[in-house]
Design a protein around this nucleic acid. Structure first.
Lengths: 205, 205, 205, 205
DNA sequence: TATGAATGAGGTTTCATTCAT
DNA sequence: GATGAATGAAACCTCATTCAT
């Protein structure tokens, strides 16, 4: 019980450090962020951060994994609730946009700071993205199997295209001085992704 | 004649430095790249790089601007040759994919190293992207005006979605250990972008 | 108690750095002095010096201010003990000569290294000199008021002349390969400053 | 004759470089002065300065030697014209003050930039000062021998005191934002140097 | 467990000087 | 002689990380 309490305290401190890091990384950028400032803002001493994380980059990794994991869970749960692949995809994309619109500092980390170096991207960030891409790909493949989605495009290419489109919208939003609501762009984006650019000519009824 | 270096000799040295920088930046990443190595590989002394560029970041900017400008020019010229907005868009996207597939180190710089920091992105890189987005948006708007493209999606959202989809494919390719041909992915991507995910159901015969 | 360093330990380290700097600056000259050597001689790591001082020039300023302040205090206290302006001036000058004779490395800094640049002189070093000149001027003005000193010479000119004479003696001493005792030159210098060059002819009995 | 002409041209270029250096050194300070700016202002190419001087410091030395030599010559000639040691000393000091008041940039060099480092002072600048001190000392010794000057002060101490007093007045003037005429301070300074600080009491009628 | 003072590696850049033309 | 492009040595300082307390 004492252990549980101490575990709670430990967890709280860990969270404080992570949250402080999200803010500082978003404000100054990862490279220009100072561990000292992270520690200060978390209300702990410089050295204490190293009792919770291996180092600066480990904090970045932890931010990524924690949020990515949570997002993927929610996305999977959302998807599971929908029968139709179209609805599933829609739900996931909406979740994606909403998750980041609700936390701009975190969005900043995800869209920009996590894309620093090839090494980092390859070893860490893309692991989570790959996971996400697999989810998208599975939904799309299901849609293809059911005849709902076209099947003359490889599912992995489609998944990456969908991800890229969503991702770019979010990056624009993060970089904009006066961003327009992300959620508001979900509908047109989905219309586009589902129906494509071309107008469905009158030849079809 | 004094020391007046012929302009083409100067230009050759400048190019050598830029090319060396592309390679070193791609190999080690911008942050881990050493100016010494850039100079060495360009076959000049350390200080010489500073006669041609203000500093390390200026080299990154020069790489961006030089290639982005050239790409935009080619893309505009390509587009101008096509009457149909659909063909125009297709041409531009193909050009985009091909340009980077032909120079993997450069692709690396464009997809990863140029996205370092918010400051850099906002002030420099996104300037070029914005230019490119405007080109896409114009083509799409034309297509909408002519009835070729659907018009229930804002042209700027569509442009960003298209750019994002292409961009993500390239990033995957850059990060892949054994990348599949980019050009080979152009056709399915275009099919998807033009026609959307949904199968044009049997209702249309 | 955490890492709270006792104040005297901190003070000791600060002093060690300052003393090391006095020596290195005197041996190599400020420009040729290496921060690494200062740190080494102070027995701390390179970076530690920057925990105590903002930078190299800040160390030079600290040397100046610390010693100048202490000297001025002693000089004022000395002066206060004397009733007669003549005795006051004598005391201050003797103090000035002795202070530097006792610490040749420090004298070197004061006579030479602190006079580097116009900027430095104007902004920093001369501030302390001005303080000292004001002390001299006040004593001289007192002497004039009391009839002890001639009053056909502006007190500020007299103060600068006195300072200049003392200063030059010290500089000569600092630069000499085999310097003669500075204190030993105090008496003749004072005789000269008080009585002037001209012999007080026999006409005065 | 052709050689003479070329010599003139050579001499003119040498002078241009020296004058440019005086200005740049005075404006920026020796350390912050750029050889490029010296060359530019002299109207020659960077490398050309090295055909006339060994390097940057050699230019500083040349400035010193040229002007010091000329000054010493004039001072000696002035002195030779006067019979009385008092008048001789007065003439020399007035010449000293005037020479520098007439060329503030040069005065800056002499009072500040030439006092950089111990090495420089010892090896170069002080050589000229020593020469000057010898002149002063000789005059003073003459005055002592003739009974004009007191002889209870070593002539070399007196010479240094006189030099120091004059030197300090000039330094103050160089550093002052709104300097008062130097020549105007000659009379009181001389009164002080000759008569000393003490009022020659009424006992002397 | 927490602290925070201390560490020390590491790199961009400047600029006096050189030398091929 | 003149040029000016090229050279390359050299050092201050930062800051992630450690570890004695």
């Amino acid at each position: 019980m004492g252990g549980a309490l101490r575990n709670d305290a430990r967890e709280a401190k860990r969270s404080a450090i992570l949250r402080a890091a999200v803010e500082v990384f978003a404000e100054r950028g990862y490279e220009d962020a100072r561990m000292r400032e992270v520690a200060e803002r978390a209300g702990v001493a410089d050295g204490t951060t190293y009792l919770y994380f291996e180092g600066k980059e480990a904090i970045l990794v932890a931010i990524l994994e924690e949020h990515a994991k949570a997002f993927l869970q929610r996305a999977r749960r959302d998807a599971a609730k929908q029968k139709d692949p179209g609805a599933r995809l829609r739900k996931v994309i909406e979740r994606h946009l909403l998750s980041l619109e609700n936390d701009r500092a975190l969005a900043h980390i995800f869209q920009i700071e996590l894309r620093h170096s090839r090494r980092f991207l390859r070893q860490v960030a893309r692991g989570q993205v790959a996971e996400y891409l697999r989810l998208l790909q599975r939904i799309i493949a299901d849609g293809m199997a059911s005849g709902r989605f076209r099947n003359d495009v490889p599912a992995d290419v489609a998944a990456r295209a969908v991800f890229g489109a969503v991702d770019e919208l979010i990056t624009s939003w993060v970089l904009a001085e006066r961003p327009r609501s992300l959620a508001g762009q979900a509908a047109p984006l989905l219309r586009l992704l589902f129906g494509g650019l071309e107008s469905r000519g009158g030849e079809c009824k």
